[in-house]
Write a protein that binds this DNA or RNA. Sequence first.
DNA 1: TTGAAAGCGCTAACAC
DNA 2: GTGTTAGCGCTTTCAA
Lengths: 341, 341
Amino acid sequence: MDQDTHVPTIKDVAKKANVSAATVSRVLHNLSGFSDRTKRKVLQVAEELGYRPNAIARGLVNKRTQTIGVLFPNVSGGFSTDILHGMEEAAHENGFSIIVCNTARDGERTMKYLQVLREKQVDGIIFASQVIKDDYVTELAAMRVPVVLVNTLASKDSIPYVKVDDQQAAYQATTYLIQNGHREIAMIAGTLGDRLTGLPRLKGYRQALEDHGIPFSESRVAYGDFQLEGGRSAMEKLLSEAPPFTALFAASDEMAIGAMGVAFEGGIKIPRDLSIIGYDDLIVSRMIYPPLTTIHQPLALMGRSALEMLIALIGGKQEVSNRIVQHRLVERGTVRPLARD
Amino acid sequence: MDQDTHVPTIKDVAKKANVSAATVSRVLHNLSGFSDRTKRKVLQVAEELGYRPNAIARGLVNKRTQTIGVLFPNVSGGFSTDILHGMEEAAHENGFSIIVCNTARDGERTMKYLQVLREKQVDGIIFASQVIKDDYVTELAAMRVPVVLVNTLASKDSIPYVKVDDQQAAYQATTYLIQNGHREIAMIAGTLGDRLTGLPRLKGYRQALEDHGIPFSESRVAYGDFQLEGGRSAMEKLLSEAPPFTALFAASDEMAIGAMGVAFEGGIKIPRDLSIIGYDDLIVSRMIYPPLTTIHQPLALMGRSALEMLIALIGGKQEVSNRIVQHRLVERGTVRPLARD
DNA sequence: TTGAAAGCGCTAACAC
DNA sequence: GTGTTAGCGCTTTCAA
């Protein structure tokens, strides 16, 4: 019905305003070199015609798309979501758009996405909390666009990142439990193979135990995948197989929440019978009951930071420094001091 | 250092393979009209050079970007997240990319996004759970791209949508409470002004009460914004101002969870002292304790559906029919039958 | 079976 | 101040 009416281009504006396309372009970009009169005329005609520049055409000539690709291991889950939120905000402020990709922790899928992003000529890429395989690095290099990592590291530290100091944070979480009188402390760690965020947290836990003269016992550690379900099964395992424990450190809030559910179902009261500390501080963590004591990561801020680093890189900055953001322990309702014997 | 090496274009491939760019294009698209020998040659050279087609250039020619824009009122929050997940999945399967936009329920911001999406020549747009203002409709019309709605409606039903029957679902939720012996039932409704998902749920609640001979009392209704914080304040208001109630229907799981937190803090045990039923069935809802009894909406499926409808429309389909997806009540741990007097 | 040429909508020299 | 020209990388007639 109105399919016939044609979408106005810069030429249409030029013609109707009796100027050249170049002049229209100048006016629209507020460059120098046109009289006030032409400016008004052009603007008015553009308005009349309902003209909107075509970013695709523009992108073709200046090789910039103002678009960046972001890869997450799982878009659902409060974790990715909070980070995405910060990124989206920063992107919008800086005139960029974000293409989201859900890699589902799958290598092939990730490669596929990387190719799509390459073809779409994104100006830069962000990887969030994902193990960076060598394949990716190769593809990334071929793309010749800047890359920033959130909450993860590349093998040789070769890609700029923003993250917290996982090991130290885990150390602090564990120490907090110890200071509250706990000595029998279990842990639900992240994916076993994950040396980047999984391992450091485990190390921090272990180190804290050792520094306080508490023997580390492998049997008190169960492995999850950072997600709710993983937390649940890990907790079930601990409850049935591990030596008794009075406190638990979960390497993610989702796992902590999953574990809490299992505990409650088993009639274990938190924090009366068991103290739990999480890791992340998702929005939901303060909303559940009892509200979760946890290590706060400024997720939205991390997303924002990463995006800003990336934009700086895109803008020609040669190097940006990695950013270790501050975590902090937030005391809420899931840890109780143990009376000393 | 390697900034000089130039990114290979179709011409480079053509030259090196001793054919024309046209032929390369044909081979790459598997069109007819080339010998097997050229095909092999072209493919091999393309591989050698590490050639990747430029989707921007292609988009300029065929006016298709294989990209769609999705607008959410808030990207964080389990709700949008679950929908996005379904969309992302379907998009990926169909060779589309998704640009996410967080409108923050702000009209101006939404318009701004719409303009960006227009300039970026997205092939279609999805609005998720947002009131559709007339401004948007105008802009959308000017964009000449198909639009699909998830969990919302446009004023004159003029835009295809996928959603559940809110009123009926709310009716069912409320009836369930009544069937469990509750007669003093409060509600935390959605945004007051929102006639699209807010109002129908309120109506369903009200209708259920009336159909069972229970007088509706405005004082037992508080309004939230579908989010956690809104649920908290609404609950505080109900607790302090409303006549006593034994059951609560919250128009979103987030609000239900927020309300549960407030209840617990006030020493109110759920479901012993108060029964709660939510609406959405977020992933987290089954993980908290007690697990939330709620109205299940197939969020990921709805996202997927919407995306598939949109792709059909983009593909030239003239019309798609609206889709009312099935909700269902899932009984978990937050509602208890009230002993009859 | 293949190539030449035009053009998608825009920008960026380079003229005048 | 402003227009002309060329060209970004690709697809698509139209000829050959």
